[in-house]
């Protein structure tokens, strides 16, 4: 039975209350196989859920102390955070932890020197970043390092110039970016690279018209966005593509109304949550990217999100624009 057959009166509207309920419930539903498979990235899940709640102005319904005390159990002696209690530290989860604390205005509980040393310690000689001690290199980790350190106001702990040079070395002839030099452009990777360049004031390295055309051609007939040419659309690219287009000031090159409709069509109108494509199973990841996408599309009732730091604009302005 497909739940998309629900009352048509709700078609074309964001069922915000249901998404809020879905997020709050999914935290409690731990018995399904899917939730166990996702166990190792609970920190990311928490960031997706909490940011969505904040964008919908419902963050106060969460117990800050409960989240923060669990979050601290994930921190290792090295300063890095794991995806969940007992797992190994990795920058992927360290950024989420920093972002969650930023949301709650609780960055002061962090030992900033320690966390930033962990991240800075992962920079390699060529300017790239490893994700953890095992040495996987990817421009995702460059973004994560730069984003977290900027939020913690510790960018001076790394060699920013080399970090930027490495990202630029991953630029392709189509204007996009890949995970390592020579790797194919991918919208998620483009977000990471453009985001890192944005945060370091280095967007002049981007060929905005070339990349902008590649990105705007990600919009397919249904209005949704794909992540690479000739691929299916997916709600998560509403975030990766849109945020990149906004950072380079080319977002007017896509049809926003059609994209809004595509995202809204991916809602589970009965039980809340958003999926990758209409009528697929919902999850917290796509719920976040759908709502964040709507925020970037100025959908009424959704707070503005910052396209580079992936946190609400008021949170980032409070941290970076207020002395």
């Amino acid at each position: 039975m497909s739940s998309s057959s629900s009352s048509s009166s709700q078609m074309g509207e964001l069922v915000a209350d249901k998404h809020v309920r879905y997020i709050l419930m999914s935290e409690k539903k731990k018995e399904s196989f899917e939730s166990v498979v996702m166990d190792h990235l609970r920190m990311n899940g928490a960031y997706w859920g909490l940011t969505t709640l904040d964008l919908l102005d419902k963050l106060p319904s969460v117990s800050v102390d409960e989240v923060v005390s669990w979050l601290l159990t994930c921190q290792h002696e090295s300063g890095g955070f794991a995806g969940n209690t007992g797992h190994d530290p990795h920058v992927l989860y360290t950024l989420s932890a920093v972002q969650i604390l930023a949301l709650f205005d609780k960055l002061d509980i962090l030992d900033v020197a320690k966390v930033s040393s962990y991240i800075a310690g992962l920079q390699n000689e060529d300017g790239s970043f490893s994700g953890d001690m095992w040495g996987e290199v990817d421009t995702r980790f460059s973004y994560i390092a730069i984003c977290s350190l900027s939020i913690l106001k510790c960018l001076d702990k790394i060699n920013v110039e080399k970090a930027v040079d490495y990202i630029v070395s991953c630029k392709n002839l189509d204007g996009g970016f890949g995970c390592t030099p020579g790797a194919e452009s991918h919208a998620g990777q483009i977000f990471c690279c453009v985001g890192a360049l944005a945060i370091t004031g280095s967007l002049h390295h981007v060929d905005k018209d070339l990349l902008g055309w590649w990105l705007c051609e990600r919009q397919v007939k249904s209005g949704g966005l794909n992540g690479r040419p000739e691929k299916l659309p997916d709600v998560c690219y509403s975030w990766w593509v849109l945020s990149s287009l906004i950072m380079i000031d080319r977002v007017h090159w896509i049809n926003k109304a059609k994209l809004v409709k595509f995202i809204l069509d991916c809602q589970d109108l009965e039980n809340g949550g958003i999926s990758d494509r209409p009528d697929d199973a919902v999850d917290i990841f796509h719920t976040y990217f759908g709502v964040a996408g709507l925020s970037l599309l100025e959908y009424p009732g959704v707070k503005a999100i910052d396209p580079a730091y992936a946190l609400p604009v008021d949170v980032i302005n409070r941290i970076l624009l207020t002395k």
């Binding site: 944005a198 950072m247 100025e298």
Partner: peptide
């Protein structure tokens, strides 16, 4: 008029770590 600023990161400011003095 708008909540989204498409030139937020094309403008030197503390957000892009490119202008911090007051």
């Amino acid at each position: 008029e708008h909540s989204v600023d498409t030139t937020r990161y094309l403008c030197s400011s503390p957000l892009s770590n490119s202008e911090c003095t007051r």
